[in-house]
């Protein structure tokens, strides 16, 4: 007879890896890191401005290569409040914190980011916000610390 106690094997995966943003997103993050600029990319055919940048227009399938400097100010189009700590090392702020989609001026798509310097119950759709940049920027989306009200 085999034993009824299951034999449990302790497994572990430990895989370091690095993924490149690609040519377009690298330019986006370089501008963010070096010049505190949020860059969008404009479709030459239908004039739609995408942020973050992409290489093909989703509307007319045109190739995109015209960079435009979009504003660091925008409007909250939707938001949510996070009350739950699910992964402390991967969450950017202590709970409760707010996360929203911000429609930047001169851009046609929304940017999902954190909302800071405001009480979560004071946030409303349509409120005006501006980007706050970190002092030490490393070339990732958290070089923008959060968006605060203006």
């Amino acid at each position: 007879m085999t034993s009824n106690t299951p034999y449990i094997v302790e497994g572990r995966l430990f895989v370091p890896y690095f993924n490149y943003y690609g040519a377009l997103a690298s330019e986006f993050y370089r501008q963010l890191r070096d010049h505190k600029k949020i860059m969008g990319i404009k479709c030459p055919t239908c004039s739609k401005v995408y942020i973050p940048p992409r290489s093909t227009c989703a509307k007319c399938f045109g190739n995109l290569n015209e960079w435009v400097d979009v504003s660091s100010k925008g409007t909250v189009t939707t938001y949510t409040i996070i009350h739950y700590t699910y992964s402390p090392s991967n969450q950017p702020m202590d709970v409760p914190y707010a996360c929203g989609i911000i429609q930047l001026d001169r851009a046609d798509t929304g940017l999902c980011h954190l909302l800071g310097e405001m009480s979560p119950d004071k946030i409303s759709v349509g409120m005006r916000v501006e980007a706050v940049f970190k002092d030490q920027r490393q070339g990732n989306i958290l070089d923008i610390k959060y968006f605060r009200p203006v």
Binding site: G11, L13, P16, Y17, F18, Y20, Y21, A23, S26
Partner: peptide
């Protein structure tokens, strides 16, 4: 070219 470093660290039985 920029990118992000990650470590996938999972323990499982």
């Amino acid at each position: 070219y920029l990118g992000l470093s990650h470590v996938l660290n999972l323990s499982f039985n």
